[in-house]
Write a protein that binds this DNA or RNA. Structure first.
Length: 285
DNA sequence: CAAGCGTGGTT
DNA sequence: TAACCAAGCTT
């Protein structure tokens, strides 16, 4: 089954710009941008970012505000802050070179288990357990007949995924990108395209009739009127501003309840995404 | 460790 | 249209 997925990927895998013809830094940037954000929205920002800051040292020499502004509307702007901090740490700790060691990667700001493994695998073609939501869904369905991954990984799930990894580095790296791609393009969360799947004949979930999709529990993401939305509006305002401004008195935020606006601005200040001049009360990135 | 964190396209 | 969804990380 693993080999069938790898063969499918050689024919059907997308030729994304950070695959094969980029640098470890380009791969790392793409992985951070792709955390919870779709490929189509990442691509143009990634190109502009890599043209402006082709190495970690280039980004480290810029300001955090520049990074957050260049992040634009990708969402979760704390990722931009952490990617900038990551560049600084790579210069400080690793002489400006993205480390190939998984533990060293994992210690960088904004790099968790998944991203560290992804960089080892995609950038350095090493053998690492790349277990994102796509891979978890593919393995869960095809090998165990489960419709959707559980909220949290278990030791047993990781052990099962590890047991499927090819022994050689190149094979493990190809399996990682192939299984992720299958989950992204074919074995999708809501409407699986089982007619186009190389595992259809062997998939435990397909053979069982694709059960349990409708009643599977999903996490709900409230949005309208939430702090998250207000934070986003504040950040959008400050990204567009050419000079520090008064956030709480701004006309563009006049519809926000004052208590919520204060709370959200305080949160952004605490997160280090916004700065405030205490003399004037004006804010900037 | 459950909760919080952006955004825009799709249904 | 409101809800759902998309390569997680941090506290």
């Amino acid at each position: 089954m693993v080999d069938a997925v790898r063969a499918w990927f050689r024919d059907e895998g997308r030729d994304l710009p950070w695959r094969g013809r980029s640098t470890p830094w380009g791969v790392l940037v793409s992985e951070v941008m792709l955390q919870q954000t779709p490929v189509v929205r990442v691509e143009p920002v990634w190109h502009a970012w890599m043209e402006r800051w082709p190495t970690p040292a280039d980004l480290a020499a810029a300001t955090q505000a520049d990074a957050v502004r260049a992040w634009g509307r990708l969402g979760y702007p704390r990722r931009a802050k952490r990617l900038w901090e990551c560049a600084v740490a790579i210069v400080d700790r690793h002489g400006g070179e993205v480390p190939a060691d998984q533990e060293a990667l994992r210690a960088l700001p904004g790099v968790g288990d998944y991203t560290a493994a992804a960089v080892v695998s995609f950038a350095f073609h090493g053998r690492a357990l790349v277990l994102d939501t796509n891979v978890r869904r593919v393995i869960g369905r095809a090998w165990r007949g489960e419709p959707l991954p559980a909220a949290h990984q278990t030791v047993g799930e990781r052990a099962h995924a590890a047991s499927l990894m090819p022994e050689d580095d190149a094979g493990a790296a190809e399996w990682a990108v192939a299984s992720m791609e299958l989950g992204a393009l074919v074995c999708t969360a809501r409407v699986a395209r089982c007619d186009a799947c190389p595992l259809a004949s062997s998939c435990a979930w397909f053979r069982a009739g694709c059960p349990g999709l409708d009643d599977a529990p999903r996490r709900t993401q409230p949005w309208h009127g939430t702090d998250r939305q207000v934070r986003g509006r504040i950040m959008a305002l400050l990204r567009a501003a050419s000079a520090p401004l008064n956030v709480t008195g701004h006309a563009a935020l006049a519809d926000v309840e004052p208590g919520q606006l204060d709370r959200c601005l305080d949160g952004l200040l605490a997160d280090g995404l916004v700065t405030r001049d205490e003399a004037t009360g004006r804010c900037a990135l």
